[in-house]
Design a protein around this nucleic acid. Structure first.
Lengths: 340, 340
DNA sequence: GGATGCAACTATAGCGATTTAGTAAAACGG
DNA sequence: CCGTTTTACTAAATCGCTATAGTTGCATCC
């Protein structure tokens, strides 16, 4: 209906009285034009509101101006965790101002995720990707290597072969900071309501808890699917025993809140008779009553750092060295106390 | 490093012994090749794992295969609301399988949002956009019209000039279902802790509450910035009065949870002495104690519907008629009761 | 049997950028 | 002052795909 014609590099070339090639040189700040001509071209481009056509750019082989994020979670569980929104918000904050967009898709399996990377690469749709939830023997990593698709993995230890680049934070140290704290309070029977066993962080946390056995702490792990319903079930069975644990640690805040409710329903006072804690924080975890002791990680900052790292990676000719992310901190709130 | 060469339409043409044009016809299901040849081409394409180069496609003027979503919220508040994640998850669910990606950017002002639409359009980066938070006299809508950029607005009433297409749900009806319920319980003094006044839904809800005056209900509105801190402050001041309201309604669940906490801190039993409700639901709202009476809207479904509608819109030559979204339902939980 | 029509292709011209090879003019050097 | 290098450009090819204008062969029809 409206013809709102797009202004192209050829239009500016005509206006400036030079060839399209010269305009390209000028706009991309590379040698080949005099300072004077360059300025003139830039002025004209500015004036006529020229914007690069990313499709054309991508086609000729330079950047697509897009980074990709394939999330392997069911659409339902996405909303339950503040993690994604925070991460995305962080990524966006690093991208703001730069002319780079984030593309996101939900996938339902690792295979589909790999296929997505292949498609993105072959269609030159994204310049790089952010990868989360690394697993042992992760099938995605070799594919990314083969495709030479720039990537940043958010993980719990350095990348196996130094590739793809990883931002990692020592998850066993994180686990220690929470479990040791509970141990120091005097808890000797701790239950850990975890996520699926295939995630690296679940395994690491489980190991740390087991390691506390030497110091007389009985640890127990219940695997769940991250759902609040599963957390409630786990909590109910834990509290129905004759020998209850004195502390229960959940993998995320929503599960912890679900657990808290079960404790209240069953008349178990928190933190007097039971301490509750979570490996994930959120605004709500600090607002519920009692507020929940959590590991607070700067997910927003992590997202921002990941995006920045990825952009560097895209520009760099070689794979960059791994980086260590900001260490999560223990935030003690009302839900934990010395056991009776 | 790795040469993982991309297979192009020309490669398949060579393999099939036809011209690239014929391959294009075959792959896009348009006349110009015999059924036999078409099948052969399709087989070869499948076999050699050919994938369309979206950059090239976008360049020649067909679809970019991307829909855009510009969110005008600060990165911080994004994470606080489950709305976005749910909406995005819904959008993704509608996009899954189709070869369409969603691009998302955070913007910090309406001007920036408009500039984003301009950029997206001029660079042919997206085929259409989803627009949220319509305002009175919204500056974005005429721009989208001028650019003839397919768009779907999620709003609270039909689009002013039938363009862009809108999915709307009658927000005053929603407001009625909650306020009327509280009125029917016997509440005669209701406070509404709202978001910024420029949002349409805030205004509509305010009007509905004011309208209850005829039936002897005293309504009061406190505008906030959607933050839990502002909600706490509002709640504290409300409960410090000699004449307290008997019910407080919050614009979203996080604010309601913050308010709930203040009530507990101040020793005001909920729902005995005070009813609390929220215009937004979330998993957590049903898990906290007491669980919160909410308006439950199918945000996931809304996202899915919006995406589907947008895709139809993109394919349709003309602007489609507005649609009405699924009506949100009142979910009564533990936080509301007959006032003392 | 020559004009007509149609099916099944091919050849080719873009889309809007980048990039390489080529060229004219200016600068330099001995 | 002539040969060489540098500067500042232009011309043209290219990316992968789509779309339009031709081209060919073959059946059709009065």
């Amino acid at each position: 209906m409206n013809k709102a014609k797009r202004v192209t590099i050829t239009d500016i070339a005509r206006l400036a009285g030079v060839s399209p090639g010269a305009v390209s040189f000028a706009l991309n700040g590379r040698p080949g034009v005099s300072a004077q001509t360059r300025q003139r071209i830039l002025d004209i481009a500015e004036e006529s509101q020229w914007l690069p056509n990313s499709a054309a750019r991508a086609l000729v082989g330079s950047h697509a101006g897009v980074i990709g994020f394939a999330v392997n979670r069911s659409a339902g569980t996405l909303g339950a965790e503040a993690f994604f929104t925070d991460l995305i918000a962080g990524v966006q904050s690093a991208l703001a101002g730069k002319r780079i967009a984030m593309q996101m898709v939900l996938v339902s399996s690792v295979e589909e995720e790999v296929a997505t990377y292949r498609r993105w690469h072959s269609a030159k749709q994204v310049d790089g990707v952010i990868v989360i939830d690394p697993r042992d023997d992760d099938p995605r990593l070799p594919v990314l290597r083969d495709l030479a698709l720039p990537a940043v993995v958010l993980g719990s230890h350095a990348s196996p072969e130094g590739h793809p680049a990883t931002i990692w934070l020592d998850d066993s140290q994180v686990a220690h900071s929470l479990f040791d704290y509970l141990g120091a309070l005097g808890h000797r029977s701790i239950a850990y309501v975890a996520g699926p066993a295939e995630f690296q962080h679940t395994r690491l946390r489980t190991e740390v808890l087991a390691g506390l056995g030497e110091r007389g702490v009985r640890g127990e792990v219940i695997a769940t699917d991250f759902s609040p319903a599963a957390a409630s079930t786990a909590m109910r069975s834990l509290l129905s025993r004759l020998e209850r644990p004195t502390a229960v640690v959940f993998d995320n805040d929503v599960m912890a809140i679900a657990g808290l409710r079960v404790a209240q329903e069953m008349g178990v006072p928190v933190p007097k008779d039971l301490s509750v804690a979570s490996f994930d924080d959120s605004v709500v975890a600090g607002l519920v009553h009692p507020s929940i002791t959590c590991i607070t990680r700067d997910t927003f900052g992590l997202g921002a750092e990941a995006a920045k790292f990825l952009l560097e990676q895209i520009d760099a000719p070689e794979v960059l060295a791994d980086r260590i992310g900001a260490m999560p901190q223990l935030t003690v709130r009302e839900s934990t106390a010395v056991p009776r």
